[in-house]
Each structure stands twice: as C-alpha cells, then as structure tokens.
Design a protein around this nucleic acid. Structure first.
Lengths: 197, 197
DNA sequence: TGAATTCTTGAGTGATTGCTCAACTATCTT
DNA sequence: AAGATAGTTGAGCAATCACTCAAGAATTCA
C-alpha cells in the first residue's frame, strides 16, 4: 500500500551508469543526476542513500554488464583463446559506437580515487580482480585443452591481458585515436592467438 | 626593483605537480595548493593566473621530465630496442619507489577531462602524441639499423607500446598490484626485445 | 469516504568551491 | 630618507557542492 514509485529503478540505474561513466564521480554533480534521472534530490536520496552509494550501484551494473559480455563471447567461441581474442576485437568495435566513454569506467574510477578510499577504491579493485580471474579461468581452460603450452601461467597471462585492455581503452579515450584503436585491438587479439601452439 | 618573490618558482611547480599528479585536477582544491605550496591565494593567482593554468604548467613539467628520462635511457642504451626495453623496466622499478601516483599523470588527466575540453584535453593529447612520436623515432632508428625487420611499422609499434605503458601504470595503481607490476613490466620489455631479429 | 501509508517535491541547509582586491610589506632607486 | 615599484596577504565574494526535511500528492486499506 501507499504511493507507488514513479520511476523504474533499472532504467534509472542505467542512466546513472551512463552519466557517471561519461563524466566520472567527482565531475558529476547532483544537479546533473537530477536532470538525467528526472528525479528530485529527495527521491534520489530515499532511493539510493547517497551519491557514493548510487555510484557504487551504477559501477556494479557496469561490471556485471562487462562480465556477462565476456561470458557470452567465451561461450560462443570455438575455444578459450579464440574467445579471448574475440572479446578484445569486440572492445575495439565498441569504441566505434558512441559509448558514454571509450575508457573503462573501472579504470576511470581507480584513477580518480585516493589509495585509501574505503568504499569506491575497495569496490573497484574487487571488481578488477574478478575480471582478471575470469581471464585466468579462460587461460586455464585453454591450457587444460592443450590450446596453449602446458608451461603457460594463466594468472600471468590474465594480468598481461588486463593491462592490454586497460591501455587500449585509455588510448581510445584520446579524441585523436581514430582508426588506431581498431588496429591496436586487432594487434592485441593476434598476440593472444599467437599464444596457441 | 620592488619586492622580491618569497618562493622559488621551480620548487613551487614541482610541489604543485606532485600534488596534482597524486590527487588529480578536480580533487585538488586551492586550499590544498595553498597548504602544499605555502602560498596565499593572491600570490598563486598573480604567479600562475588560474588553477587550470597552474595545472597545465605542472603537467608540462611532468611531460618534460618524462621525455628527458626517455631520451637519457635511449642515449645510454646499446641500441634503440634495448633502450625501449630498459625504459619499460625502469617504469616498473619506479612503481616500487613512492611516486605521487603509480598511474601516469597524463592518463589521469585524459580520463578526467571531457572530450571537448578546450585547454586540458588538447594539451594532454598533444603531449601524448609527442611521447608516441618519441617511441616511433626509436623504432625507426631500430629499423634503419636493421635491429628489427625492414617491414616493421614504427608508428604502429609506438602506439602498441604506449598502450602497454598506459595499461601497466593503470594496473599498478591498484593497491593490490604488488609484485605483479614488476613482472608485467618485464613481460612487456621482453615483448619489445622479441621484435629484434 | 477517510484514515493510513508510501513516495515526491523543492526550497533551503551549512560547507566548500575558485577567485578577487584593497591594504600592507619589502626592496629598489635617487 | 622618501618615493616608486613589485609582491604578499587574507577576509570575503558569488557560485556551487552534497544533502535534508516539512509539506503535499498518490495509492491501499477499512
């Protein structure tokens, strides 16, 4: 009973994610959020508690989206290595669309957060560990299947891949990156494929 | 004639650079700057004009530092490829010291600046182009000297290297990166060395 | 229909932002 | 010593920040 909410929580979270992803945490004001979410401050605060909590919920949505994308690409691919290479090529293609930002929202958050931030920093680092662990799982699968040499180190390869993707998407954020982004994504994908025996 | 300045401009710029590098542009307030520079707002404004102009001067100092480091490493090295590999290994070592931030100040600026920022964004992108051009010069030298295959593409290799360094330093910003940073730097250095015939 | 409940509203909170400027201080020249 | 010049000071400005809360609106119960 009582009055029903006049917004759809999922839609609102998606909009918040896009805004935060584009502008970052500090550069996004509550006025911006009020406009984009079409909600008044009181409603925002009863719904999410604080700007920080809303950001965390938005970041969570972003991370879950990314994890689902990776899982789907891996599932569709003929092999783990082919899947990882396809994932990187897809990232390259995504940059040509008009995403809120070409840079990764997790990296943006990592870089604008002080080392000892108890909430945002811990949250984003946990998410990064999960993504990295997902890569490591795929490399482990590849090793088990004999797709890459038995001496390969999945954790090491996973960290190296995350570095490449972090870098690719930071580079892509340059407004003068142009066609380089696609080519770099392809170069990185080829490096992954070159791991196969 | 007239009163002499009570501060050393070079020292002040160094302090400003360290603060901005650590905290980023938006999260650094003038109160922070007043404390770290030991200057009152009036002095800061007569000396630098605005927070943005001071940031640009600090960023310029950062970029010049980096360019000098690269040039010195390349000059000391036995070959261009050896020099680039040494540069990457040096970056890995720098992360173990206590730099204001493990992430690159240029990347931090790129990621916290809107696409159409007329000052900060154009400035940082020009700097990135210069660094990338420096890498390309070294790869061109290597090709001319026959150190890498004649069919190598210096511009492409330079972009790929910049991506690796951007990524490495973003990864290193994670407080849980630990010894991975050193190992990743070494992995990247080996990839460069593997280009040699 | 009216009480109970839930959600929305937006003016307003104190704190902080980047920045200014009139008063003041130090140094130079004569 | 006195005037001219250059640099420093810090109280304070308008704007903005994240956030609050009393009042009003919508819905469900009896």
């Amino acid at each position: 009973m009582g009055r029903t909410t006049g917004y759809d929580r999922d839609t609102v979270l998606q909009s918040a994610m896009e805004l935060f992803w584009a502008r970052g945490y500090h550069s996004t004001s509550l006025k911006d959020l009020e406009r984009v979410l079409d909600m008044r401050p009181g409603s925002i605060y009863t719904a999410f508690g604080s700007k920080e909590a809303l950001f965390c919920a938005a970041l969570d949505r972003y991370a879950i989206n990314g994890q689902r994308n990776l899982a789907e690409t891996l599932a569709k691919a003929q092999s783990p290595i082919a899947g990882l290479a396809a994932h990187v090529r897809m990232i390259g293609r995504l940059m040509s669309g008009n995403p809120p930002s070409r840079a990764c929202m997790m990296v943006k958050t990592l870089l604008e957060t002080p080392d000892d931030d108890p909430v945002l920093r811990r949250t984003v680092e946990r998410m990064m560990r999960e993504v990295e662990a997902g890569f490591a799982d795929a490399f482990r699968d590849a090793r088990r299947a004999g797709e890459i040499p038995p001496g390969s180190n999945p954790e090491r390869l996973a960290a190296r891949l995350q570095v490449s993707i972090f870098g690719l998407r930071a580079y892509a954020q340059r407004s003068d990156a142009g066609e380089n982004t696609q080519r770099l994504a392809d170069d990185i994908a080829r490096e992954i494929e070159a791991l196969a025996v």
